[in-house]
Design a protein around this nucleic acid. Sequence first.
DNA 1: ATTATCTATAGATCTATAGATAATGC
DNA 2: ATTATCTATAGATCTATAGATAATGC
Lengths: 204, 204
Amino acid sequence: MERHENTEQEILRAAEQEFLEKGFAGAKIMSIAQRAGVNHAMIHYYFRTKENLFNRLFEEKIRLLTTNLYPALANTEQPLIERIKNTISSHFDFIAENHNLPRLVVNEIISNPKRRKIFRQKIQFAIKTLKPALQTELDQLADNRQIQHIKAEDLILDVVSLNLAIFILFPLIEGVFADDNKTFLEHRKEENIKVILSRLNYKI
Amino acid sequence: MERHENTEQEILRAAEQEFLEKGFAGAKIMSIAQRAGVNHAMIHYYFRTKENLFNRLFEEKIRLLTTNLYPALANTEQPLIERIKNTISSHFDFIAENHNLPRLVVNEIISNPKRRKIFRQKIQFAIKTLKPALQTELDQLADNRQIQHIKAEDLILDVVSLNLAIFILFPLIEGVFADDNKTFLEHRKEENIKVILSRLNYKI
DNA sequence: ATTATCTATAGATCTATAGATAATGC
DNA sequence: ATTATCTATAGATCTATAGATAATGC
């Protein structure tokens, strides 16, 4: 009988890998057990069901996703343009560190109406917290002819779209546009910032 | 014994729906048979295996995806900016009509190395056909100070990212930003065009 | 005679649990 | 005594096929 210091943590770590790679349906209890180096019965002992284990991890990840956009934007000591730059950059870096997460979230939310409902409420809340102050600032700059007028939600969607898509596309285009992946992604991060600043019509 | 005029076509139609909704692993032979209104043994009779059936449909879809970007761009009678506008618009409309396709392609290509290799070759070929002429035109306009300098591959990725992401995000944000989905998507299409033209620094 | 459809079932794969066994803490 | 681990197995779900049966075309 093999004894681990922390079987529960090992299972969580292994399950996170497995679910991110293969999604809920594709992930197998046996495979998670193997990755964790424990008997598969242990997974049921600690988490009862596959769904329990998944939800535990999924909710934590959703929390990260929905709270990640504001911090860089909220630091009102810098001018808005600087904060937008930083937000794009840190959002890009966050997705880079969790490059399988967007695909997992989209897939599982589509195939599970309960998860979809919860997620949409969180998004709705995040937008409601973010939008009014941002829109006020954007309108102010637009009135001063410093930027072009834009709706806050369009700006948010433009940023999220550009940052998200490159990582969703990455497995399909890896090696097509550049030999070195790291250089390629760094370049794309700069390009995304450039695109957004151009949209705002801000002259660098 | 129920007799259909075209069992094979019914199966293909039903399988396309099922695979697009649930992916390869999530799709079930029994469920496809039910949608098609045929006995499940018929699916094996006509296509032998689930994988055969899937590949048949998948390859056709990939062909559509990789050939969809150029036609609007190739019509050299119009000025480049007009053609770029039209390309963004028709690319957007194509994804709108096949809104589940990008997710399916990404998922299946990630989980299947053989498909990944084939797909990457097709992308590589499509880019090679598209890029040189486009880059020449872009450089020309940039030299005339009509647009800002940009690499052809960055322009392509910007367009594809913006158009793709909104449909991948759609199930997550449906109803969050607007009540009417059709109006919302029309608005986003215009926004995407505006973003790209701003990036090119083209004054409308 | 050939082609299409149906029934029944084999066999693989997975999740989950019962019950036995070993380790740990008091 | 309680907690953790393992073995064995039930039971559900799926793909695939063999073999019987019905319809169609010559």
